[in-house]
Amino acid sequence: MSMSVDDLTRPRGNARSIRDAAATTLMAASVVAVMIPLVMVLVYVIRQGSALFGWHFLTSDIPTTRSRGGGMGPAVAGTLLITGFASLLAIPLGVMGGIYLNEYGRNSRPARILRVLSDVMTGVPSIVMGLFIYTFLVLRTQALSGFAGALALAALMLPVVIRATEEMLRLVPDDLRLGSLALGSRRSTTIMRVVLPAALPGIISGALLALARAAGETAPLLFVIGITTTTNWSLSGTNTALSVQIFRNATQPFEGAQQRAWAAALTLILIAFAFTIIARLVSAALTRRSGAT
């Protein structure tokens, strides 16, 4: 039998090839190992959550803990309101910050320090941001509100958006900037009309991913938004959110409360997944439209 390349690179039947096969099996097994909890969590949330999930659940008021049925309308409204306003605060500021890091700061010392600082801030526990807004705002104004919750989520999102924006701006080739400047455009015009549009798909997708993350956060909201059982579309006054409702109902001994927790979990996962999918679609669509890159 003649030797093929395969025989040379993949020796069979000896200790070395057995070790190689064992290692490969372990790698594939790790993938399977992590799929098990993923599937289990999703299956349980869908199975337990779909019992109550529906239009009525999404819109009606939160009943007392002991009663069955009812809905999570106020929590759905709270989650959308709080994360929506948080994005309104964090995304423009974060994009501008990313512009500073990549377009003005580049490799200067302050930019390098701010870059590391942003990275480090993305790892700060989210409950610290909750404590921050509690001590900074709630203690002073003596008022729990959706606004305070939005501030806490915005503080959490800001470093993520800054770094995501910077990474995307870095991919824009310098030729585009030089071309625009050579035509006599100002720096700000170059950035707003040439650089930013080129990086937009990535920036939007990064911002939406940060938003999806923020929508699921519980710890920053726990002490700063208070509680309500009726829908409050205002940034002032106490509010509630899906994540907080799940946390409060998870350890309740009453079946109705647990059922609402599961259905709220299903709603929250659907919201988070929706933002994630939209992020991918937006970036795919805009990339296709703008041609290459």
């Binding site: 799929m35 993923l38 289990m40 349980y44 929508a215 699921g216 799940i246 599961w262 929250l268 994630t276």
Partner: peptide, 23 residues
């Protein structure tokens, strides 16, 4: 595979907690 792992990161902490304590 990458998307599935990302999906794992999208599930909120409180949902893991709920599944953890109830299931």
């Amino acid at each position: 595979v990458i998307y599935s792992i990302d999906l794992l990161a999208t599930i909120p902490s409180v949902v893991y907690g709920l599944w953890g304590v109830r299931v």
